[in-house]
Computed example of a mutant assay.
Amino acid sequence: MLRVENIRKAFGGVVATNDLTMHFPKDSLTAVIGPNGAGKTTFFNQISGALRPDSGRILLEGKDIVGLPPTEIVRLGIGRAFQVSRLFKSMTVEESLRGALLSPLGKSLRMTGRFPLKETRDRAYEVMDQLGLTQSANIISGNLSHGDQKLLDMALALVLQPKVLLLDEPVAGMGPEEREQMIETVFALWKKGGLTLILIEHDMEIVFRISQHIYVLSYGRLLAQGTADEVRHNPQVIEAYLGTPKEEVA
């Protein structure tokens, strides 16, 4: 589904991603982890078109998307939810989702008209139902709880029916109950099928619980990859990121 080949991005003398090659099969759930500064967000920025790699290829279903505008990359099937939610904070949840649907079609003026496009309303409610936002349809987005704002940010990506969804720290800033609800929602969304999901996450309990495959970055390079058990017990990953459990310290 999605493959990156030897991508490199430098900012002056700092190499943020260094010769990265990764493969994300269709319908897979993959985590990308690593310490702060490892290059994770830069990696997402390159996939979504916010940054252009200095070299390398990013292939979506075999098509190289490097250099395409972010709007075109969205149309081809890559959606993204951000660590800090990017919302239309003066609009209701329903209006936000209808706006996201209509904007790529050049029909945003019809969004708040007396007779909104029926198909956009139906799709908006379909996604709200999926994410548990239906009861918040008429709430102004800026008045939502932190957890619901994160859900709406995800909904804005999902409403365009992406093939690949990038989730940047979906549980950041949440309390235990919100965090558990969010990860159950993410996992259920993936289990439904038809979506290749890639997440950046610092909560290792979540990463090890739901990920099929894990890539570990360190200083822009691929340090390790494998299943949860393989990564959890990898000496290089333990040293660079996970640390040694207290009970094992001599």
Rank of each mutant, 00 (worst) to 15 (best):
G243S: 01
M204D: 04
F24D: 01
T30A: 01
K191I: 04
I140T: 15
E230N: 11
P25N: 00
G175I: 11
I198F: 02
I7G: 05
G37K: 00
R8Y: 13
R121P: 01
Q46R: 01
H213Y: 15
N36E: 06
G147E: 09
N143M: 13
E248N: 11
I139M: 14
L144A: 11
D153L: 02
L76D: 08
Q181H: 13
L20W: 03
N36C: 06
V84G: 06
S141W: 05
N234H: 10
E95Q: 14
R52Q: 15
K89V: 14
Q212K: 13
R80K: 12
Y219K: 12
E184W: 07
V207R: 03
L223N: 04
W190Y: 11
G13Q: 09
L222D: 08
D148A: 11
T21L: 03
I238P: 01
N18R: 14
T112F: 10
T120K: 01
A16T: 07
E248H: 14
K246Y: 12
T112V: 10
L87I: 12
E94Y: 05
G132M: 04
G37D: 01
G142T: 13
S141P: 11
I214S: 04
L242E: 02
N234A: 03
D148P: 05
R179S: 15
S85K: 05
A16K: 04
P170I: 00
T92P: 06
S136M: 13
G77T: 06
A16D: 09
R86A: 04
G113T: 09
T185P: 04
E184R: 15
E72A: 15
K63V: 13
K40G: 03
T17D: 06
L117H: 10
V171I: 15
Q149S: 06
G62C: 10
L2W: 10
K9N: 10
T227N: 04
D19G: 10
R86L: 07
V249I: 15
H233S: 15
G62H: 11
I200R: 05
V127T: 05
R52F: 09
